[in-house]
Design a protein around this nucleic acid. Sequence first.
DNA 1: ACAAAAATGCAAATCGTTTGCAAGTTAAGC
DNA 2: GCTTAACTTGCAAACGATTTGCATTTTTGT
Lengths: 146, 146
Amino acid sequence: MAAMDIANHLRRHKKSLTRARAEIWHILTQSEKPLSPDEIHRRLTGHKVDLATVYRNLRALKDIGLVREIDLREAFKRYEAILAGQHVHHIMCQVCGRIEKVRHCVVQDMANAIQKESGFTLKDHSLECFGICPSCQPHKTKAQGT
Amino acid sequence: MAAMDIANHLRRHKKSLTRARAEIWHILTQSEKPLSPDEIHRRLTGHKVDLATVYRNLRALKDIGLVREIDLREAFKRYEAILAGQHVHHIMCQVCGRIEKVRHCVVQDMANAIQKESGFTLKDHSLECFGICPSCQPHKTKAQGT
DNA sequence: ACAAAAATGCAAATCGTTTGCAAGTTAAGC
DNA sequence: GCTTAACTTGCAAACGATTTGCATTTTTGT
């Protein structure tokens, strides 16, 4: 999704390109990691934008495919801009909380196996990883479910 | 985790094997799919157990590795018993909500790639799939982020 | 059986997120 | 540019899942 296209993309879905929307989109595209609604809200600099508006816009952007919602087992969800159809997963350090992107993904390889095993057609998936980042090694952490 | 071992496992962690705990564990081991705290609560038949107690026990069981917490993009989390070190993922039908297990998992194959790419050591991951189950084909659904 | 530790019920509190509504902003056509 | 309909926003209240304080009850280890 090129930055230029956002206005058209919104228009196609009968959505307006509002100041809040533009600012939120800009913040997301500039961030190296997915952000929580609250983090986004705190980064808004211009005119006052209500947190409820941030939530409403994140949902709107998600609904039309501009934004991805990510669950890293925190108390809240995170959001990131979907750029150029990229397929991204994340790995979060269980010690320091650092979040990085993981571009390698083998899940599509599972599609056939899943199709055979369950008869489901795979449409989408969430894959989030947890581990220990280089600077936190060799800490130990408690086991977690998968 | 053999059913027999639960008492010992709890004892090792200074936890008691209470009636509520035993009942919740039984319900989880008998379920074919992960259950929400509320579903578990409603399935409790014996003496009255408060919903808060269900939450406290699920957390306790999760903390000592007997239970796995699962996020299927619903408003709540689901929980399932971890039996015999099984490694399980899930696929939920985007049309009817049916949930099935997916035993095939290729994520471990990603470990090396992730290690190289980010320097993280992979400790754990969440992989939940969404698609269309056999009886709901060939419905169409809106796209979702990954 | 006892004392100490752990768990429970109940009610209130949290906290992320959503919603109703009146007022403000944006889009589309003229 | 102006006008109206459609879409958004701020604000406050509502929500729903989950958590917590505390007095009481149950379980544990001896």
